[in-house]
Amino acid sequence: MYAAVRINEIICIGCKKCIYACPDPNVLSFDEETRKVSADESRCKGCGLCVSECPKDAMSIY
């Protein structure tokens, strides 16, 4: 893994904008109970589109 997204679950408001912005399938998922987004880092290519779209700065690429 070279670069991948990390989500701060405390800040995430579950708006799903990142999910609609990700060019790769099955990377980001939405938990309907906690209403938070989580990432499968092994599938992430680290493009950062989700970071650009997140209105709360809850995501970063490391």
Binding site: I19, P23, D24, F30, L49
Partner: peptide
């Protein structure tokens, strides 16, 4: 609008990071 809650038809593909076409 349900994306993120189910397994998608598309699987991991080799297109570039940030590819608009893939999105």
């Amino acid at each position: 609008t349900d994306l993120g809650t189910f397994k998608e038809l598309l699987e991991e593909h080799p297109l570039c990071a940030g590819c608009g076409l893939a999105l």
